[in-house]
Design a protein around this nucleic acid. Structure first.
Length: 430
RNA sequence: UCCGGUUUAGCUCAGUUGGUUAGAGCAGCGGACUGUUAAUCCGCGUGUCCGGGGUUCGAGUCCCUGAACCGGAGCCA
């Protein structure tokens, strides 16, 4: 007899199989019982008919409580009335642990309660679906870069300096000196790109900002491609292709999960392909037409960003920002010194910035000028400046926040549900 | 950090102009039911009304204070 997984049940139609898992829910209607059984790959309904299985097994079924651990044996049969299309005609039941008082009942709960029980909440259908889509998005991201001749080159998490000198970092003691948890692997990514041509790094990122919004975590995952001999337009193209590839994969491989989340595939399909592109200056004009009192040179706040994204039904690329509001490493536009060759991708439906990137400044003197102007400690950047001393080339890259992409593609109200154990200003446990 | 809001049963919430004994639904338990999808029907419980202080004959309700949480802003992916 085969030991199988719920997600493969359809392939075993007509066969007697065994499944190991947990009770999702159960109900009875007289002499017939319905057991929703989950094993981590899906949920299958088991049917227990008293007259077929006998009184002893039926009584045993009646004792089952939510999340008790069990193994079931039975025949897989097709039945359109069952969720998932297949069900299991139960013939034997082994109880490993009968439990009492599982805290998460199949009724309404508040976010605080659920977050305090996050270690259990991830068993629930909806959370499970989100995390499976997260996996698909991460897998697709890796597959995309791997199949486009990128090399994965990891970057350190302990760093000695602020990468951009802007955001607040988590400080930690490192054998007698201060170290900071990485807020981006980008500078190292640039070194890697000079060594490997096309590289990506993918790891956790830490920001100590006391942000309390639906878009922020203090610990999140970011993928950062960096490409040698690449300019802004090509950089944008890579971003478009990556997002399109991810959406295709999610649509193809995670239909059940999308359905659980009531995310319409037709909506996701619209997001693919080439994205509309506007310059910062054009975006400012757009804001003026929309009645915003906004001065050229300022950074977009949340309301501005949302308004711009709302004008499009696809992700929109905003490029060429004022130099003053962007990081020191962004290359100044040779055609307009006031702007840099940066680009942001704003997701539709109010999900905000999912990608931020730029062509990097490859001229040593300009870079030194910026470091001085921003009052950054030059000695900390000597290794980075070496990249401009020894074989400098045009190069570009971007960072994509995984949680924001998951949040958007799943159409969630908050990023905290996109990561198994979210770290936020007020959340450190479980 | 700033602005706004919330805190009452295991969970989600209601609770009138301050009024005597604080409610409902769900979950749980027992029973009925051979196709349930958050099943339905009958029966059975539960309270530090967030903590502290005050006003009042009387406070879940009003005031002060503290805490926790939620949403937004800034910052960003």
């Amino acid at each position: 007899m085969d030991k199988i997984l719920v997600q493969n049940a359809g392939k075993f139609e007509g066969q007697k199989v065994k499944l190991n898992g947990w009770v999702y829910n159960s109900r009875r209607s007289g002499k017939i019982g319905f057991l929703l059984f989950r094993d981590g790959t899906g949920i299958i309904q088991c049917i227990i008919i008293k007259n077929d299985v006998g009184e002893e097994l039926f009584d045993s079924f009646k004792t089952l409580t939510q999340e008790s651990s069990i193994s079931v044996v039975g025949e897989i049969v097709k039945n359109d009335r069952a969720p998932g299309g297949f069900e299991l005609l139960l013939s034997s039941l082994e109880i490993h642990q009968l439990i009492e008082g599982y805290p998460i009942t199949p009724k309404d709960h508040g976010t605080e309660f659920l977050m305090n029980h996050r270690h259990l909440w991830i068993r629930s259908k909806r959370q499970h679906a989100i995390l499976r889509i997260r996996h698909e998005i991460i897998k697709a991201t890796r597959d995309f870069f791997d199949s486009n001749d990128f090399t994965l080159v990891d970057t350190p998490i302990f760093t000695s300096n602020a990468c951009e000198g802007t955001t607040t970092l988590f400080e930690t003691e490192y054998f007698g000196e201060s170290a900071y948890l990485s807020q981006s692997g980008q500078l190292y990514g640039e070194a890697n790109a000079m060594a490997f041509g096309r590289q990506y790094n993918f790891g956790p990122t830490f920001r100590a900002e006391k942000s309390k919004t639906r878009r922020h975590l203090t610990e999140f995952w970011m993928v950062e491609p960096e490409i040698a001999y690449c300019e802004l337009d090509e950089n944008i193209e890579w971003a478009e292709k990556l997002i399109t590839f991810i959406i295709d994969r999610v649509i193809t491989n995670r239909k059940i999960e999308l359905e659980t989340l009531e995310r319409k595939i037709e909506d996701l399909e619209k997001f693919r392909g080439e994205f509309p592109k506007i310059s910062y200056t054009e975006a400012v004009e757009m804001l003026h037409k929309g009645g915003f009192d906004f001065e050229w040179g300022g950074d977009f706040g949340s309301p501005e960003e949302t308004y711009i994204a709302e004008q499009f039904d696809k992700p929109v690329v905003v490029h060429r920002f004022p130099t003053a509001i962007k990081a020191f490493y962004m290359k100044r536009d040779p055609e307009n010194e006031k702007v840099v060759l940066g680009m942001d991708v704003l997701a539709p439906e109010g999900y905000g910035e999912i990608i931020g990137g730029a062509q990097r400044e490859d001229n040593l003197d300009f870079l030194l000028e910026r470091i001085e102007h921003e009052k950054l400690p030059q000695e900390e950047f000597e290794w980075y400046l070496d990249l401009r001393r020894y074989g400098s080339v045009p190069h570009a890259g971007f960072g994509m926040g995984i949680e924001r992409v998951v949040s958007w593609l799943c159409k969630l109200p908050h990023v905290r549900e996109t990561i198994p154990y979210p770290r936020m200003i007020q959340t450190l446990r479980p």
